[in-house]
């Protein structure tokens, strides 16, 4: 009987280890500081996680398809700078579609290199991280970009607005999460993403156009980045060139924390959302505990690595294994 419960507990841990960790973590922090679960604080965390979350939704498709995307941080800086600059020259109504078009071009470029030319996604997106940063600086001339008439534009709605009392960034994140969850789990495209990431050769042998599927995951990722860039620009109405710097790793951490396999073929949108929230709440919790900002970097990563390790350990039912 005891063995049975232990086995059941093990199974629960293996399947929902991250959720369990999330729950434990929330309880501990809430006990340490009741303000942590104050509704205002919770809403604040979700709101400030929304931009990261939107990017993580797109990267989830890329990762399930068996690839990486390390370019999303610098691509988000690019989108933000571009849309802010065009806001004053073309007006917001034209600036937004123009920025989306340019960002999707970047995604298409990566998609061609990784999908059709079959180059290693780590190398390609690492290179693009640098290259896009360069493009951003070329566009801005290295200067911060600001909207001239901050009071007179409706552009702030995506980052600062409320609908029925709910912040727009949370609405965008939630809506996109629902739509992309349906795309991933309910459409033929989603099925093919799992197949290509799970076993690309078998997918090819089943007539799945592997290159096109990979290409489309990068288009989707770029689309999400464009939305994130729009939210970022709208929130601050002005930006540095480096606004998205380092976010590619946080995004990847959220996706992996959610349980998507770095080898591809596994993961869900729901789990990624959990991963995003865990990351957001960890940082918030540490802040409330009064830890210095830079200590957070260290502690956040220690927790992430611990969580991933426990997740893997639960899957192979021991803490250490000589083989993967």
């Amino acid at each position: 009987m005891a063995a049975l419960t232990r086995e059941a507990a093990g199974r629960l841990l293996a399947r929902q280890g991250i959720l369990v960790a999330f729950a434990v973590f929330m309880v501990v922090f809430a006990l340490a500081n009741p303000r942590f679960i104050d509704i205002g604080n919770v809403a604040g965390v979700i709101r400030s996680s929304a931009i990261l979350g939107v990017m993580a939704l797109g990267v989830t498709f890329v990762v399930i398809g068996g690839n990486l995307d390390l370019s999303v941080g610098s691509m988000m800086s690019f989108s933000t700078i571009v849309v802010l600059d065009l806001h004053d020259t073309l007006g917001p109504a034209l600036a937004i579609p123009a920025m989306f078009a340019l960002t999707l071009c970047l995604g298409a470029f990566i998609g061609i290199l990784v999908g059709y030319l079959k180059l290693n996604s780590l190398i390609v997106t690492l290179g693009m991280l640098s290259a896009i940063h360069g493009l951003t600086l070329m566009w801005s001339g290295g200067k911060n970009m600001d909207i001239a008439d901050k009071a007179g534009t409706w552009f702030g709605i995506f980052g600062r607005g409320d609908v029925l009392g709910i912040p727009v960034p949370i609405l965008i994140f939630a809506l996109l999460a629902v739509v992309l969850s349906v795309v991933l789990s309910r459409t033929p495209f989603g099925r093919k993403v799992y197949a290509v990431g799970g076993n690309g050769t078998a997918a090819t042998f089943s007539g799945v156009p592997r290159a096109r599927v990979v290409f489309l995951t990068y288009i989707l990722s770029a689309f999400c980045v464009a939305i994130a860039g729009l939210m970022q620009a709208s929130r601050s109405l002005g930006s540095q060139n480096t606004v998205g710097q380092g976010m590619e790793l946080e995004v990847l951490a959220a996706v992996i924390l959610g349980g998507a396999s770095l080898l591809g073929g596994a993961g869900t949108i729901f789990k990624t959302v959990i991963g995003v929230l865990i990351l957001g709440f960890i940082q918030n919790g540490l802040l409330l505990m009064g830890l210095e900002f830079y200590v957070q970097y260290v502690v956040t990563w220690v927790i992430i690595i611990l969580a991933v390790w426990l997740d893997i350990a639960a899957k192979r039912s021991r803490l250490w294994s000589p083989i993967a």
Partner: peptide, 23 residues
């Protein structure tokens, strides 16, 4: 290596080539 996506379920493996036609 070539026939199956081992991590996917039975049905999804079987219908993979015609998933578009079946939607």
């Amino acid at each position: 290596g070539q026939g199956l996506v081992l991590g996917m379920n039975c049905r999804d493996n079987m219908t993979l080539p015609q998933v578009d036609d079946l939607s």
